[in-house]
Structures are given as C-alpha cells and as structure tokens.
Design a protein around this nucleic acid. Sequence first.
DNA 1: CTGAAAGCGCTTACAG
DNA 2: CTGAAAGCGCTTACAG
Lengths: 337, 337
Amino acid sequence: MKGKATSFDIAHLAGVSQSTVSRALRNSPLVKQETIDKVKRIARELNYTVDKNASSLRSQQSQTLALLLFEDPTSDDSNINPFFFSMLASITQACAHEGYDLLVSFQQLSNDFHADYEDSHKADGIILLGYGDDIEYKPKLEALQSQGTRFVRWGPQSQAGLSVSCDNRQGGAQATKHLIDKGHQRIAFVGDASNHYPEFFARYQGYVSALMAHDLPVEPALQHNAITTEEAGYEATKQLLNQGDSFTALFAASDLIAVGALKAIAEKGLKVPQDIAVVGFDDIPVASYTSPPLTTVRQNTKLAGEVLVKSLIAQIRGEEVESTTIATAIVERGSSG
Amino acid sequence: MKGKATSFDIAHLAGVSQSTVSRALRNSPLVKQETIDKVKRIARELNYTVDKNASSLRSQQSQTLALLLFEDPTSDDSNINPFFFSMLASITQACAHEGYDLLVSFQQLSNDFHADYEDSHKADGIILLGYGDDIEYKPKLEALQSQGTRFVRWGPQSQAGLSVSCDNRQGGAQATKHLIDKGHQRIAFVGDASNHYPEFFARYQGYVSALMAHDLPVEPALQHNAITTEEAGYEATKQLLNQGDSFTALFAASDLIAVGALKAIAEKGLKVPQDIAVVGFDDIPVASYTSPPLTTVRQNTKLAGEVLVKSLIAQIRGEEVESTTIATAIVERGSSG
DNA sequence: CTGAAAGCGCTTACAG
DNA sequence: CTGAAAGCGCTTACAG
C-alpha cells in the first residue's frame, strides 16, 4: 500500500462498498454490527484515518473552533495577560472534551481580527477573548453578526452577539465590602471607569454600590484610570499617592494593576497591608507570590471555558442560547490584612 | 447571492473561467495583472474567501501546524508549567508570521498523544512540547517517525526526530558558576538527575562541570530528585534542609522547583540570600515576584518558538533540517545576593 | 442493511 | 495568457 489508505482501500479489502465503509466508521445504525467490526478492524490494520479535509468539505462542518485572542494596549506578544492563558487552558480542555479541535490565534483589535476562520470553513465558530476598547470593538462585532458568523465573546453583554462573562459588578462589590469589613473607609479604585471598558466599569460600579450600601462617600479623587497592565497600575498609584488625598485601602481593577500598585506603594516607603490594604481582580498565578500575597477576586476560568465552548457549540447546532454570567469569589491573602 | 460565494460565482461575474479565478486569487504569474485586479475586486465585493477544506483537499496541504502540549506529572489542566505558556505564545506568533494556522491541544503522555492531526491531513506537521519521562516517550517518537509523520520536538537531541532545545548543560553551568563567583562552595542541586529527564540531567551535568572546573567536590548528598513542580521542590528542599548536610546555595532545575525551595527555606526560618542563595531555571513570570525575586537562567522562548516553527516548515517542504540548540543567559535578581 | 452515483469547492496538469 | 476537465476523499440522498 503506497501513500495513505483511503476508504476505497478498506472497501476493497472488506468486500463491501465505499459507502458502507464510510457509514461503518461513523457507527451508522444502518450498518450491521458484523460489518462495522470488520471494517474497523481493517481500518486499524491499515492505520487508516478519515481525511478531515474531505469530510469537512462534504459535510460542511469542520468540528473545529477558533480562539482569537486579542489585546490592544500591549502589542508585545510576550506580555499577554496571564489571565487569558488560564482561559486558553480551560477552553482547550473544554474543546477536547466536546470533540472539537481548537485553532488559536493572537490578533490585534486594530486589525481586521476576525481573520476568516469561519468564512473559509476552517472553523465552525469563533471564540473572542480579550479586553479591548468597547467603542472600537462595537462595529466589528456588528459586522460579524450581520455576516452570520457564529461566535461567542468573553465579556459583558453590552454588545451584539452571544457573550459569557463573570459578574464583574458583583466582584467589585465583594472586593470593596471585604475592605470595608476590615475597617477601611477611604478606599481608592485604580482602573478604567468609563464606557470604553465595560468590564472594568462594572467593577467600578460594584465598588460604588458597596460604598453606598455602607453609607460611605464616593470620592472621585480616589479613582484613577489605568489600563490593565502593571505599568499603568504603577503610574496611577504613584499619582494617587502623590496627590495628597489620604486612603487606607486600594482596590485594583485587575491583578496586573495591583502588582503595579504594590510596587508604587513599596517605593513610597509604605507597608501593605498596615498602611494600605490592597485587593486585586482575576487571581492570576503571580497573585500568590507577591509580597505580601494578593487578596483578589477569582474568576472561575475553568467554568468560563466550558460555558464559552458549550454555548458556541449549541449556537452552531442552531439551538437557542442565552448569554451567561458567572459568579466571582473573593480569595483572601495577606495584602488585605 | 444565497449562501457563500464560490469561485464559480466570481468567474461568472468576471467573465472568465473558474480556473482563471483560482489562479488570479493566488497571484499566479500566468494571469494578466488586469485580470487579477478584476477578479480580486469582485471577490472582495462578494465577501469571498477560499474554502480551505476544498483547497487543502485538492492541494494536499493544510497550511496548519498542530501543537501538542503534554505534561505527565500534573494531570490538573490548570497547573500547566507557565514556561510552556510562554512557548505557546511565541509559537503562535511564529506560525502567524509564516502564514500557518495553529491547532492547539493538551495531551497526556500516557495516552496516544499524537492524536492524528497529521494523518488526517488536518495539519501538515506537529510540534511536541512538554517534559515527560524520556523512557516512556521513546517508543512513541519512534512510532511517529516510522509512520513518516513530520514533527519537531522541544527537547534534547537524545531521541528520534528533529528537535530544538536550549543548551541545558550550559545553563546549568552558568547558574552554578554564578553561585561560585558569589563565594559559595557548597551548592545543592534540586531536580531529577537521571536519564528519565534528559533536560534536567543536562542541567545537572552543567552543575557538575562547573563545580569541577573550580576544583569543588561533587557531593551526592546535596542532590535531591524533584519533578518540575512547586510541591516537589518544596518537599525535596525540606528533606535537604533536614538531613543535616550544610550548604549555602541551591540551584533548582526549574523555577517551579525554586519557588517550592523558597517556601521550604522560609519555613525553616532561614533567609534568602543571606543564609541560602537560590538560582532557578526558565525565567517564568512568577520569578520576578517571589521574595526575594529569583535569579534564574532564561530560556529564549521567543527564539525557540521561531526556530521550532521554521524547522518544522522546512521539514514539511522537504528541506534538509538540523536539530538546533539555543543559548541560555543568566538573569540576576535578589535571590542570589 | 447495502451499493452506485452525485457533488462539496477547490487546484492543476493538459491543451491551445 | 486562458479554458475545459479531472480528481482530491469523503458524505449522503436515492434506490433497492
């Protein structure tokens, strides 16, 4: 046998037609068990595997999902938010579990990021992952949707299409309430609080709601914008510390921001948590290793990956699917006292 | 136009044959520039994209690589060595740069890990990434090779097939020499030093060679096995500290092991680097955040990813390819004084 | 339960 | 420079 065996080779050896081989390999109930067994045995002997290009072409489905991971602020590829790696891992696992292959690609929001995995029939659907400017994002999602592309997005339900996200507002409230329970009254918020980044804005809203629920004032001076990088967190915290408004706790909209905040606080000669308590968001691996270890709001990435994949597959199958919100949980470590 | 446009639709609108459309879209020099322009314009208007399944089936190549990431000790998916994420990122980038798509999958070495991305023509070649027991690994690689599967492996050249790795021996020697230069004479090694894990054994050999080059004795009691996890590093270091042999420095065969070692040392009430200096290997993100920050040997993951991808593509093209070894560099931080 | 036939949408000799 | 034709290896109506 030269080259790769085909279903015709098996048919020939099994003494049946090629159509029967195709059915048998897919466990069609139309085929006699005896025939199935014989066909499969021969297939194994020939080291046969179905040609996915042929079967995908014919059946018009690839059993493949594409994960597009985009990040706009950092164009440096090595600087991907570790939170996304954790999502990537759980998405990969979930795909394997559902019998789908996964295509992975990094994109920049500024480009035409949908590539064309779905148009080209290389994938049956697309998972969108990454924090980007919502305003810039919007037209692209709408274009995807109007083209009939099947996709699911990790993020708030503010936009077109199916989405899965954690309950950012709840998480923000949990973090803030945790600090209030520790006796703090003047709590700074470092992170974007605009409609450009709805997930961070929702965390801010949670922060505000917790303050208000405890009759504490919301002071605009204690909120500083920062995109979700260590550098931005460092700079914003430095400014906060230098502007003279006193505060005894800081809620960072992401762990990356929190790590930068820890650095700025240490440089200022202040102690965490004695002088300033810090809480982050995400529970990235590094959060356990900072000094002190970071109290943070955990996003359930394992569940998130599963829900993303299952929602997308349901959508591909034409089922009715709703967007999902996943609960968050606070993880208490040393940085909050 | 209902459904997805095909090359026939374009042919019709452009008033040329479908073959010409196919050539024009691929910038064939056989086609007049004017025709190319017209075809491409119409394709754009129709939102046309080539059906990858059809073109792969016909041309027998998928322009796709598969990355198989396997890890044996930790079956917990969330516990993937962060070093591999960094490799994954650079491989993903390198694929995009070379015009290949990337299929990602986690595997367990204990399973039949080659899946059959290549047999099924879903990928043109496979990248193998992960530390596994070399002895268990060997027959699988040989099987892959005898089937004619095109693959490249991240790891030492000890086995069948093409491989790319960092110079583990050099790295081990650099780490050890660094400690010796700091005045240390009794240096422990935590990590496997057997033929089961050749990369770690090579690091051990580098350690031994550096000691010998400085006329220092190699004491077997100062080497303890540990697989590359934080727990294993913690346990091995605890044993080392409790067995009574004194040492003033510790070289961990990986950063994960080093992180566990830091914990064991702290628990014993000893200070790093004053009482015991520590050096790791990999430069994972966490290494910058431990207390004190970890001195380590950096593997150039950016270059490694590029070389892996380029070597595999060259092999797919039928070119003659050699295995590659990449230089390491020491990154000095607080843990070594 | 099985077979003969059509066709998925391309690429690529072959012919001009 | 272009076209008509074959064929990649499957799945799936259609017919029996």
